[in-house]
Amino acid sequence: MSNPYHCGYNLHSKTLHTASPGGGLKKTRQSKIRLHVNGKLHDLEVGDKPHQIKPSHTLAHTLRETLGLTGTKLSCDEGACGACTVLMDGKAVLSCMLLTVECHGKTILTIEGLRNPETGELDPIQKSFIEHTAFQCGFCTPGMIMSTKALLLKHPHPSEEQVKEGLSGNFCRCISHYHVLEAIRALTGEKGHS
């Protein structure tokens, strides 16, 4: 059986374009930023105009304001709450803590890209969150789900402690933690308790 956490395309093999030789940004100012977001290629201009990426823009800002992917939430905007978690090259990152100009050539997966792009089928994590009502207001949920995704890519059968550790950076004020743990436990099965 294929990996149940497979989300439609392989996150690890999608390193599309290596950054320009020598790390690009550090030496020469990049005038274009290439991002691969949810399976789509975006070539973004750097500049001061409304449609351009300012060097001060965070990845969260670019995703939300430039690309219209508002599923990624912003709360603290300083790396303390996990609401803005997305996957970058398969790993969970806080998109409020990265400047877009640093992300050239990266592959990003946001909550909008989690369902299977061909069939539209939900990721098993999404299904389990629905099944277990693993949210209340739902504002922390995209970040929670993306952190869970990263965790399960790394440890398909995490222990309870690994799950708690993996989500320890995600703030939830409604205290939906208990249902989130149930939702994840249901996915990882009894083995997860080892």
Partner: peptide
Amino acid sequence: KARVDALDIVTGKAKFLND
């Protein structure tokens, strides 16, 4: 029962004010 807004919440479609 699943919440009526569940799908919007887990797919990021739910539009909060700042969205």
